[in-house]
């Protein structure tokens, strides 16, 4: 362990190695590391931006959905109103039709009644004539008395 020329040799080696490191190792490594750092920073900020965009899209979609729901609700409401209206109309129609039928029937009955009355009237006149003939036992001139008989029948 005596000091000798190794001192000089190692010093030279030391400076050569340091120079090599300074020249060829340190700069490219530092450059690469710095560039990567920048790339990572950029990537992170891009990711953050994307997240923001996504959140915005989410809220936009939510808005659209709500709008669509409201619209659908409106359509359903409209359809229900329309259906109700149609039912009402149908009911009204049915009611009118019934009323109309009833009136027609009443008229018919009335007509029938009038006809029966007329028939009865004419037959009453004949019957009354026959009855009177029987009562009087004499013939009555139908033509002479028809005026009176008609008046009688009118009173019935």
């Amino acid at each position: 362990m005596n000091l000798n020329f190794t001192l000089i040799g190692q010093s030279l080696t030391f400076f050569v190695f340091v120079w090599f490191c300074l020249k060829y190792i340190w700069p490219p490594l530092k450059t690469a590391m710095r560039e990567r750092q920048e790339a990572i920073a950029q990537g992170l900020s891009a990711a953050e931006q994307a997240q923001k965009d996504l959140a915005a899209a989410h809220s936009g979609a939510e808005l659209e959905l709500t709008k669509a729901k409201e619209e659908a609700q409106g359509i359903i409401e409209q359809a229900r109103n329309r259906a109700n209206q149609m039912v009402e109309e149908a009911k009204q129609d049915a009611r009118d039709e019934g009323l109309r039928l009833k009136e027609a029937a009443v008229q018919e009955i009335e007509q029938e009644m009038n006809r029966a009355k007329a028939t009865l009237r004419s037959q009453v006149a004949v019957l009354a004539l026959a009855g009177a003939e029987k009562v009087l036992e004499s013939s009555i001139d139908a033509s002479r008395h028809s005026q009176m008989l008609d008046r009688l029948a009118q009173e019935l």
């Binding site: 190695f17 490219p28 490594l29 690469a32 560039e35």
Partner: peptide, 13 residues
């Protein structure tokens, strides 16, 4: 030097 210059030579971002 060998190990580090290898890494330095291939160093990319």
């Amino acid at each position: 030097l060998f190990v580090f210059s290898r890494a330095a030579g291939r160093a990319t971002a």
